[in-house]
Design a protein around this nucleic acid. Sequence first.
DNA 1: ATGGCCTAGTTGCTAGGA
Length: 264
Amino acid sequence: MRIATWNINSVRARADRAVAWLESSGTDVLALQETKCKDEQFPHAVFEAAGYEVAHVGRSQWNGVAVVSRVGIEDVEVAFADQPGFGEDGPVVEARALGATCGGVRVWSLYVPHGRSPDHPHYAYKLAWLEQLRRNAEGWLEADPAAQLALLGDWNVIPYDSDVYDVTAFEGHTHVTQPERDAFFAFADAGFTEVSRVHVPEEGRYTYWDYQQLAFPKNKGLRIDFAYTSPALTDRVTGVSIDREARKGKGASDHVPVVVDLED
DNA sequence: ATGGCCTAGTTGCTAGGA
């Protein structure tokens, strides 16, 4: 089975591109982030015509996450327990996490809050969000140590200095602060393995390139999209790839898919 | 090659992204 994660940066603008990629890559389950639409606006028909079922949560033009699958979708959750919210007029739970069981694997599509700047309330929200997700993940493993869990998504954290083209460009910014990195690595402490690092250990293998200033041709990117797997699922992983071909051409998302292969 | 921001809504500017 082949599973993947991709921040699509508007599913309405790129539904055809996403389905073409699903078919050409032979992907069975895809976690999408930043669909940027409400549920009723999601282009279901485009995916269904290709044989994929869709579970989506989107409440506005912002955020939005989905799981699409051709091996079934069961037990959909549109948030994790006690998922922190954000808002000027009181916290509102955003469409940033969706869980679904596909082909026996519990897949979570995750869009971690950006943080905006280290002194912005969004930054505290980001840390709280990651901590509460990690508590849930620990609980899922505690309840079933043999659970096959995949935490897939745009983590909005640059774990190592080598995961950015020039770390000095991020001084004073989010993504590289120690609390964010600690929150990211806490999932490893909880028993999960970030399998893209295992199979794609080389530096300069980014998953995101800004649209501006020829960032992609110059390979001035960030590595911020990751796949954490539980021990039982890690045992099944045969390979991981980052499909930078998907960044090419007019109309590309600024992120590319991270693909995880599992033995049957 | 891969090419000098993009998307959607409150549209002709603004917010958000990283």
